[in-house]
C-alpha cells in the first residue's frame, strides 16, 4: 500500500507528478511561521506550541524569528499605531510566497479597543489570508486556522510567483 508498494526490491522505480503538487506538498508540511505575538493571543499561541497542543504535529514547530526565512506571519494580539510600522516592515522583509494569519479579535478588527492608538484591523494595511475569531481564540481555533492555511498552500500554484511585481532583483537573472 501507499508509495512503498511502487518500489522495486532494489529501491528503484519512479512516479509521475506535477511540480505544483510536489512543491505545495513540501511547502504545506513544513511551514516556517514567524510569530508576531504582541498580547494575550501570543500566550494562547505559546500554549498551542507547548506541551498539550503541540503544533509540531503540523510540521510547524520551527519558529522562525527572522522574517527573512519565514513564510507564514502569525499576527497575534493588539497592534497599536506605534507597532504598525514595525509590522509592515516585517511583512515587507518576508520573501514570497508568504501567508498571513490574523489571530484574535484585536488583530482582525481592533476588538474591544476602539481607541485613538489602536489599528482597527491589520487587514486595512496588509493582506490577511485567514482570520481567527475569539478573544483570545482557543488553541483548537488556532490549529483550525493553521489547517486552512495548509489547504490554501495546497491549492496554490508555482506559476503565481513567476514574475513578482516591482522586483528588480528578478531582472538580473533573466537571460533573454
Amino acid at each position: 500500500m501507499g508509495l512503498e508498494s511502487n518500489l522495486n526490491t532494489d529501491g528503484g522505480g519512479f512516479m509521475v507528478t506535477t511540480v505544483d503538487s510536489v512543491v505545495n506538498w513540501a511547502r504545506k508540511s513544513s511551514l516556517w511561521p514567524m510569530p508576531f505575538g504582541t498580547a494575550c493571543c501570543a500566550i494562547e499561541m505559546m500554549a498551542t506550541y507547548a506541551s498539550r497542543y503541540d503544533l509540531a504535529r503540523f510540521g510547524a514547530e520551527r519558529m522562525s524569528f527572522s522574517p527573512r526565512q519565514a513564510d507564514l506571519l502569525l499576527i497575534g494580539g493588539r497592534v497599536p499605531i506605534k507597532m504598525m510600522p514595525v509590522l509592515q516592515k516585517i511583512y515587507e522583509q518576508m520573501s514570497e510566497p508568504k501567508w498571513v494569519i490574523s489571530i484574535g479579535a484585536c488583530a482582525s478588527s481592533g476588538g474591544l479597543f476602539d481607541t485613538y492608538s489602536m489599528i482597527q484591523g491589520v487587514d486595512q494595511f496588509i493582506p490577511v489570508d485567514v482570520y481567527v475569531p475569539g478573544c483570545p481564540p482557543r488553541p483548537e481555533n488556532f490549529i483550525d486556522a493553521f489547517m486552512k492555511i495548509q489547504k490554501l498552500v495546497e491549492n496554490d500554484s508555482v506559476k503565481n510567483y513567476k514574475k513578482p511585481k516591482n522586483n528588480s532583483f528578478n531582472k538580473l537573472w533573466q537571460t533573454n
Partner: peptide
C-alpha cells in the same frame, strides 16, 4: 476624542503581488 484624530487610519497599504 476617544477614537483619535486620524492617526490610526494613516498608514501605507501593502497588497499581494498577485
Amino acid at each position: 476624542p476617544v477614537k483619535g484624530i486620524g492617526y490610526r487610519e494613516n498608514f501605507p497599504i501593502y497588497s499581494r503581488p498577485f
